[in-house]
Structures are given as structure tokens and as C-alpha cells.
Nucleic acid binder design. Sequence first.
DNA 1: CTCTAATCGAGACGGTACGTCGCGTCTTACG
DNA 2: CGTAAGACGCGACGTACCGTCTCGATTAGAG
Lengths: 203, 203, 203, 203
Amino acid sequence: MAHYRPHLKTAKDARAVRTREALRNAMLLLLTQQSLDKITILDICQTAGVGYTTFFRHHPSKESLLDDVAADEIAHLIGLTVPIAVAQDVRAAGVALFNYVDEHRKLWSALLTGGAQVAMRNEFLRLSREIAATRAHVNDWPPADISTILVVSSTVELLSWWLQQKKPLPIEEVAAIYERIIIYPHVRGDRIPPERTPRRPRS
Amino acid sequence: MAHYRPHLKTAKDARAVRTREALRNAMLLLLTQQSLDKITILDICQTAGVGYTTFFRHHPSKESLLDDVAADEIAHLIGLTVPIAVAQDVRAAGVALFNYVDEHRKLWSALLTGGAQVAMRNEFLRLSREIAATRAHVNDWPPADISTILVVSSTVELLSWWLQQKKPLPIEEVAAIYERIIIYPHVRGDRIPPERTPRRPRS
Amino acid sequence: MAHYRPHLKTAKDARAVRTREALRNAMLLLLTQQSLDKITILDICQTAGVGYTTFFRHHPSKESLLDDVAADEIAHLIGLTVPIAVAQDVRAAGVALFNYVDEHRKLWSALLTGGAQVAMRNEFLRLSREIAATRAHVNDWPPADISTILVVSSTVELLSWWLQQKKPLPIEEVAAIYERIIIYPHVRGDRIPPERTPRRPRS
Amino acid sequence: MAHYRPHLKTAKDARAVRTREALRNAMLLLLTQQSLDKITILDICQTAGVGYTTFFRHHPSKESLLDDVAADEIAHLIGLTVPIAVAQDVRAAGVALFNYVDEHRKLWSALLTGGAQVAMRNEFLRLSREIAATRAHVNDWPPADISTILVVSSTVELLSWWLQQKKPLPIEEVAAIYERIIIYPHVRGDRIPPERTPRRPRS
DNA sequence: CTCTAATCGAGACGGTACGTCGCGTCTTACG
DNA sequence: CGTAAGACGCGACGTACCGTCTCGATTAGAG
């Protein structure tokens, strides 16, 4: 967690805990209403019923607070899907992913459609890279880093799009998109060197 | 009026043209040095040798100037690739795309790696949607809009990544990624309904 | 007259004359609506139906235009009253003064109650000093200059006040104030002891 | 809120008090050097060693600061003279007035000859009207309001003139002008026949 | 159960950038 | 080819928000 801890011994002070909670809720509430960079620290404090200075006792910036809110969630999400994906069941991983987001739809709507999408993408990417670094690369093509980038950014885009739909696609369908469009092209076997790739797939 | 918009009939006033050009160049120069939101309107004006107020006679905001710079370029890029892609030659379209960007590497580095990536993605998306709206959808799955979003955002991510590499991949290779990872999953014929998709491609 | 003459040969150009007239009228109109320093040159030009640049062909500043409007009027006013006052008939001078202003009430209201009062006071003072300089001082006490200042500023204040009254005092009465309160203390020549003056002129 | 008004309860905050004092002093210093409307808010802040924004936390405008500076002084001045004048000793009131101004010559020079004369006249008039409203009118002629206006504006003119003289008149003399020319015509109570007043004090 | 020290709220402060307005100059296009 | 339109540089304004700081009130733990 990236937040600033004013005094180590007060980290579990009841008041401090309450303040932190209020700040997180305020951030989430405001994210449902306006874009991250339209939200001012003063807004957050007033929404949270917390003094302006107090904010800085806990976070050096808005982004830090957002990370505080988001990091846990993202870590959870990743922890939910990666193991399944590793076990080669991409379809099940996708379903788990969208199920989880659906169950916390309000939270994720705030995080992904409320103007924090870019920050979320970056945090997501950061965590994903950490995980990717610990694992052997099953494929050397495409290069690992661009794969991570494309998977993460596309996943975020898909989630964001899905959450914004008035009549969202059934989980089955969006998970299929996730699997077929986003993940599948990357995990496909290494049998097709680009230069031998047929120009038109179906020919 | 919020800002003074030069009259249409003076749009070809030599001074105004010169000023606009200076602003565009200044923006591009500054984008190579720092992120968009670190760039100050005053910075732009001083770089361009233009009065602060004059900026607002041409643009209501930095973003507007960036759009002005970017829209032409993006339109050009799209105009370069779409026709080829329509002609079913995705590989050639990719090569044309990366060739063009490579030939204007400095400009595109500024636009994509200088902190304006998000704005570029949005402008790109806007233009792409306009084009998509004019064309019949060859596939109804995945839904057209998410396809557009994923293609555009992934393309921007790939370009951005490619431009940032110290030793960039050869155009052939990056075009292959573009074709195989980004485009191909969307244009693939209806021969592989999701439910029949083998869970493990190589099995 | 203090205005800037762009081209000597155009001084009597019909168009130039028309423009000057339009500017003067616009100034007077605007003075009835707002204070002098709220009036912008652009306001004047638009009201006059004259190009912005054109203003500066005739006047270097708003104040110059105001002087142009006012100087003649003030000179006229002074020319009307001074001779009578010199002839020792202060009462008649006052009546003449207020009669003239009353006959041009609209103009003078603009000049004195429309926010140009200070400028008018200064212009009035300037002209009065010129006249005072040409005349022998009948009294050496109080010092001539402060007498001029007090008479001019008080006269302007009285006129301004009178013009702003919803139910203005009859000319007879205001002329009495002018005579008894403003002029008399300065020209006092012992012949009219103030205590014999009826407190209310008509009594 | 247009500008931030420090809360009443913080009115005695040491920092705020220090800032206000610095602003007042800066205003007075600058008034000795240039006209009020040549003085920039930035000038004031830099002279006071105060942040630009901070100015607006205390005053909505330069004029407001000037009033702040002036109101106390004017109130003091009025408080000094009115009681004596009420006690019918106009001469003593005048002497007290000019004595006080003389003792704070630097301050009053700034206020009256530094380009703030009009603002001072208005503030003076405002306060005088408040006082006049509380008192019975000894005379019904001339009308009370024009009397107040003439006395105030003439007093301000006289003070301003006096302070600008290279060789100022002795207090005795200027107080005589004040009494004979400005006050006497209004309070005329028959007891001090003007013709007995020495035309030149020393004669 | 008080007294002292920490911690909180409130917000004053210096600062940077913004977008606006008006001025007076200077260039340009048009009749 | 002169004149009216208006683009321009400039400087001041007033606002918003930032992050730091000072202050007074509240509270908690030590005596």
C-alpha cells in the first residue's frame, strides 16, 4: 500500500482508521460523479467530513488515495484469475473475472468509468508486470512486455466498456470476448513464426 | 464568449496562420520533453514566441491545440491503412502503418510517448468511430463498438511501446504483432464460434 | 481642443466629422448609463458604429474624448457667468448658470452625474485657472488658488447634486445657495453682511 | 464567494493581523509614490511581503484596502472636530483639525494627495452622512444633504491643497479659511459677523 | 482526576496556473 | 492606396487549487 503513514503508532488508532475509511468512501463516491482530475482534495475532504490538512496526514496526493483504494481490489482480481489462467483454463478465468467485477459492480464502475481508468490501467499494469517477472515466459513471441501491456490495457478497456453498457452483455459472452479476442492470441502456441504466418489466415 | 475565436474570414490571415503554426510546433517540441499536463500554456506561448492571450484567440485549452495537431496526423494515418485493410490485406496495412509512423518517428513519439497518449487514444477513437459508422459490420460478433475500442487502444499501446523501445523491433515484426494479435481476432471469419473454441489451442 | 488629428487635411473631411460626432454622442449616451471608467473604448466604438482603430485616429484616450465633449460646454458656461460675476451681480450670474444647465439638462447630467464628475472638475478647474491668471485678484485673502479650487469644486458638487435630485430645487433657490454659500464668502466686500440675508430666500 | 473573507473568529489570528498590518503599511507607502490607480495589487503584495492571493483573503479590491486604512483615520478626525464644532467653537475645531493632520502629515499626504482623494472624499462623505443623520438639523436651509456634501468636499479640497503647498500656510490661517469660507456659511448663527473677522489674520 | 502532550479541525498562507478583459499598436485585407 | 477590421503583445485582474504552516480545541494517556 502506498499511503503515507503519519505516525506508526497511530496506524491503528480508531480515529485514524475511521478517517481513512471516510476518505476511501468519499473517493469512490466522487469517482461516480466526475473525472479524477476534476476531483479536488478539498472535495474529498468535505465529502468525507474530514479536515483539509488531515488528508495529507494520510496521503501525499489524490493518486495515492486512489491507489490505496484500487491496489487491494486489483490484487484481489489478479489473484482470482491468474491461477486459473495458469492452469490453462482461460474460459474459467474469464468467467471468474467478470463474475467478481459484477458482484462489485458499483465499486468497479467508479474505478473504471469514473475518470480513473488511466490510473487503474497503470496500477493494473504495475502489478501484472510484477507477476509476469516471476514467471517463466512460455512464449518468446510476441515479446513478453508488449503482451502484458496489451492484455492489461485491453482487459481494462473491455471491463470499462462492459460496465458502461446500459444492457450489459451476459457474463458468458463478455468472457468469451475476453478469452477469444484478448487472451487467446497471446497464448497461442509458438508454432507460427511471423514470417511464415499466412497473410490471410483462412487461406 | 469564453475565448476569442478568430473570424472565419480571417482564417487565412497570414499572421494568424503563422501564429497557429508556431503554436503547433511549440506543442510538438514541448511534448518531446515533458508530459502534457506538465506543459503550461505559458510554456507553449513562450516557446512559440506568442503572447499569452493570443493562445486563447486560437484554442480554448491545451487539449484543443493537441487535437488540432493530432487530428490531421491521425486522419492521415487512418486514411493510409483503412483502405488496405478493407482490401483484406491486413499485413500490408500494418506495414504501411508502421512505415509511416517510422518516417515521422519524432512527431509520433511526441504524440504517443510524451504524455498525450490518452488524448491521442481518444481522438483516434473518435475518428475511428466515425469511419466505423459509415461501414457495414462484417461481423456482429464481437459487438462493433468494443471491437473498435480494442483495436484502437491496442494499436495506440503497440505504437507507443514500439516507439519507446531503445532497439525497436523491425517493422516486419511489429506489423506481425499488429496483424496477429490486434487485428486478426476481430476480422476472423465466423468459422470458429466461441463455444467451439478449443480451450487449449495446441492440444 | 485636445484631440489627436490624424491627417490635417482630413480634419474637415465629411466622414471624419461624422465619426467625431458619432463618438461624442456615444460618449454622452454611455455616460448616462455607467461610470466613465466602466466605459471601454470598445463600448464607445460599438455604440458609435465606428471601428475600434478609428477611435485612436481621433483621440488618444477616453479622457481626451470626454474633454472634447466637455471643454466647449464648460467654456461656454464660464463665458456665460464670469462676465456677470465680474460685474458684481453674483445672483444674476448664478441664475444664468443654472438656467443654462437646466436647458441642457440631459447633457450636463451625463457629464456630471454619469461618473465623469472628477474629470469635469479637473477640466473646469483648468479653464478657471487660465481665466483667473488673466485677472487681477480682487482679494488677496484667501489665497487666489484655493479660492479657485473651492469655488470650482463646490460649484461642480452643487450642480451634480442638483441634477440628481428627483425634485430639483427651483433655479432661484439653488442659485441662492450658489451665491450665498459658494461665491459670497470669497468675494465678500463688506457690503452685504450675511446676517441680514434672509435665511430662506423668499422670506 | 467572490473572495475569501477570513472568518470573524480568526480576526485576531496573529498571522492575519500581521498580514493586514503589512498591507495597510504597503498601501500608505505606495500612495506617497504614485496615484491609486497606478498602484497594482501585485505592487502592494510585494511591498508588503505578502502573497498575491493573500490580498484577496482580506480585501476584494484596492479600494477596500484604502477604505480600511482611511476609515479609521477619518473617523478619528471627525471625532476630533465634530464635538468642538457642536459646541459652537468652529475656530477651535478648525485648529484641532489642522493640527491633527499636521501631526500626521505624511499619512494624510498619502491619503489626500496620492491619487486617493476621490475615494477619501467618498468615505468622508459616507461617515459624515451617518453622523448628520443622527443629529437634528439646526438649519433647514440650505438643505442638509447639500450642506454635508459641500462641507466635506471643500474640507477635503482644502486639506489636499494645504498639504501640497511647498510653504504651507500657518495652521492659524488655514483654520481661518476653513472657518470663514467652508463652515461659516452653513452654520451662520449671527453671532460672529464675518466683517469683524480680520481679513488678513496678521493685520 | 487532573495535567500535559499529541493530534485533530480549521484555515491562513505563498505560490503557480488559469482564463478574462481592456488597452494601444500594427498588420492585413478590402473597397 | 487609404481606411476599417481586427490580430496581436502586454499587463492586470480575480479564481482555483495545491501543499505547507500555524493555531486553537479536543482528547488521551501519564502522573
